[in-house]
Every structure is written in structure tokens, then in C-alpha cells.
Design a protein around this nucleic acid. Structure first.
Lengths: 120, 120
DNA sequence: TATCTAGTAACTATTATAGTTACGTAATGC
DNA sequence: GCATTACGTAACTATAATAGTTACTAGATA
């Protein structure tokens, strides 16, 4: 879609291109729509379109829209009676937080328009 | 085990402590043994023990021994005919490699002995 | 030699994800 | 108005990965 932003595509088209099912496409794009990244329209000339220029959509936008997380955000499941296990979970959580921050920073440096640029 | 390194523990003990099954424990510790982190002995006084002092076992040792990886190392699954998708996969792989490096570096800075230290 | 423990194969249970079918709703063009 | 097109979504099935379980073998020790 980034390659030809003005074109409307149906979930069937996208599914065929991706080798998957239209319903799966609608599920995923539905979440991107909730995040304001794409729009959809029903009816005859309906389909999916980017909500803003591809230069203004980063991989971090998509990553966050789909709720992908390395960290599960549940540092304390609580039911452990072992102090060492708590310490482990806490330290690992701190590291994962640092990792997650770096990841989203890197992803936010890449727009989907960049994917077409040979140099980038 | 880090808290009392000289004590031998059976997989049944460890499983009870962890709320799981002895066989599961043996499976996991078996991999750590392959990596040289723990030893096991059969028979009457048998069980599991750290292969070296807890000050010399890092979380990275364990992470790598268990083959945990953020990156799946298969950058090119190849069957994509879409250039943009290739570009995406490549860029994401580069980022994940950077992330993975940082992660293992952080984990290698923590030994399992540190888990008991309140200050660390 | 009885007992204890790891080692391991084989099976079942659970969970998450993807895929599928079916049908409702909205928009368009005739 | 009405047929057509496409999204929206519920409900179900398929697949795969992981965890858990049972059952047995092999080795070590008292």
C-alpha cells in the first residue's frame, strides 16, 4: 500500500497478495484503523487506504498499533514466595524495558515510505 | 539453587518449589547441563548442582543455553515476490540484531549470585 | 539387591494463532 | 428500489507450540 498510497484496495486483494484470508486482513487492518493509520469504506468502491502519507507512518506506529510488546508489562504476577525469583523478574523487567525503548526508537526512525528507497 | 550452591537438589524438589513437574525440570536442566551450567547425578544421593560458582553464571549464559532468541535468524524466507516486503524484513532484521546484542550484553552483566544482593 | 534418581519416549492438555464459513451492515450504481 | 460490492464480526475449525503426565529404563548407592 505504501507503494501506491492513493489506490483503494479490498481485503480480498490484499489477502491474495499476502497469501492469506480476507478476514484475517480485515482483523489486522481493523486494528490499524483504530490507531488511525488506515481508513476503510464499505460498498461498491470501498476498501482500504492509508490515512496519511506513507512518509508519516513509521514502523513504530504499526508496532504499537498491533500491541506487539516484548515485555508483558506484568512484572509482578505475585504468586511467588521466592525472593530470588522476584529479584530475577524485577531485573529482567528492567532490561526488557530498556530493550523495548530502544526497539520503538529504532522503528520510529523508519517510515513505510522508506521501504521503497534503495538508499535508506 | 544460587542461594545454596553446594546443596544437591532432586528434580522433584525443584518441581515442587516451582509448581511444576519433575520431568519438565529435567528437560530444562538437561539443556543447561549440555551448556555446562549444571551437573546431574543419578542414584541415591543424586540430583542437580551448579557446575560452577553462581558468581560465574550469568543470565546470558542461561538465555543462550536455552536458545531463546528474539530474532528468528531467518531473514530471508525467500518466497516473497514483493520487493517492499523484502526491504521490510531486512530492516527489521537489522534492528532485531541490534536489540539482541544489547539484550545479551545486559544479561551478561548479571550473575545469578547478584540476585541475592539487595544492592545490585 | 532394594531404593533412589536422572533420562527419555510417548501421550495428553492447554493455549495461541491462523484460517474458514456465514451472515449482518453500509455504500454504490443501475 | 434493488442487486452488487465490500467491510464488520461472530463462531467455528485447524494448526502448532508448549506444558504437563505417565511409564519405563539405566545408573548409583546404601
Amino acid at each position: 500500500m505504501a507503494g501506491d498510497p492513493d489506490r483503494v484496495r479490498t481485503s480480498a486483494d490484499i489477502a491474495a497478495h499476502a497469501g492469506t484470508n480476507p478476514v484475517v486482513v480485515r482483523r489486522v487492518l481493523g486494528r490499524l484503523r483504530e490507531a488511525g493509520l488506515v481508513t476503510s469504506e464499505k460498498g461498491h468502491a470501498g476498501g482500504w487506504r492509508l490515512a496519511r502519507p506513507p512518509q508519516q507512518i513509521t514502523l513504530a506506529d504499526i508496532y504499537l498499533a498491533l500491541d506487539e510488546r516484548l515485555v508483558d508489562a506484568r512484572e509482578e504476577t505475585g504468586h511467588s514466595d521466592c525472593a530470588l525469583e522476584h529479584a530475577l523478574q524485577h531485573k529482567v523487567a528492567l532490561v526488557l524495558e530498556e530493550i523495548e525503548t530502544l526497539l520503538t526508537r529504532r522503528l520510529s526512525e523508519m517510515t513505510i515510505a522508506d521501504l521503497g528507497d534503495p538508499g535508506a
